[in-house]
Design a protein around this nucleic acid. Structure first.
Lengths: 140, 140
DNA sequence: TCTTGCACCTCTAGTGACTAGAGGATGTAG
DNA sequence: CTACATCCTCTAGTCACTAGAGGTGCAAGA
């Protein structure tokens, strides 16, 4: 067995070194074996697990959701209904978030277009922020 | 002058009571005068300022950006170029965020569609998360 | 007048998901 | 053998709040 240091694990998985230690501390990754000199020594399966976590984090899953997904992954004979439910819930969140960001974008565009490029007292950026009544969008 | 309690200020501005005290502590809102019994007493202008902050926060501006906008608002004779720049920067952020969330949405849809509703070892939700190489979108 | 009960006060600590830094040990290349 | 990178643990900081403890102020009903 070749030993994978935490630095190599970080490079291969794309998860930063302190973050790997953090994941270990919150129980997302099992504590690996140690070398003579007390340095962490990872297996290839740990790298895969880290890559899984990283990808899920990039997709915006919370650590608790990832923990649930990892539990499923560890026991591949159970039903995937939970994984499906987690992904679906996240999809709904994402759709909602896109809707509200799109409304927000329109509002920011109005602000920027309305900027007179002159003095603050004629500027719609400040004006729109100051008066929520001018906000037509129900992004909030 | 009628005195506005912190509770009324919260109701009128939509900013929660502890959040108002927090904003005071970080210098976003000046410390108001106090009643005999040491209770905060706000002016109408404070309510407006709080509503301004709330709206800007809802639009996703960070507290530091809001601090800059408030400084501009306090001196309406200066150029609005800074306000414009802050709003434009936020607009770019929002557009970027929408793009990456849209890519993410597509990926989540692939996951959910690919779910066999059977066992985990045939489930694309887990599979796609486990293998980032299957992710075609450069949302990250 | 008393009491009930809500709203207010300050202060500390917790949240999520890390990130930064101190201070020291280990491992490797020249 | 000596640099120097990498590793170790531990604590504290980030952001924008939120929660809770423990105590005070105040207005209305009995």
């Amino acid at each position: 067995m070749k030993k994978i240091t935490i630095g190599d694990a970080a490079r291969q998985s794309g998860v930063k070194v302190p973050t790997i230690r953090y994941y270990e501390s919150i129980g997302l990754l099992a504590a690996p074996s140690r070398s003579e000199g007390n340095q962490r020594s990872y297996e290839v399966s740990d790298i895969r697990r880290l890559a899984f976590v990283r990808h899920a984090r990039e997709l915006g899953f919370e650590v608790d959701a990832i923990r649930a997904l990892l539990t499923l992954q560890d026991d591949p004979h159970q039903s995937c209904a939970s994984a499906d439910a987690i992904a679906k819930a996240r999809l709904i969140e994402v759709e909602q978030r896109i809707r509200s960001l799109t409304a927000l974008k329109a509002e920011l565009e109005t602000m920027v277009e309305g900027c007179c490029h002159g003095r603050v007292d004629q500027c719609r950026v400040i004006e729109i922020l100051a008066d929520h009544g001018q906000c037509m969008h129900d992004h909030h």
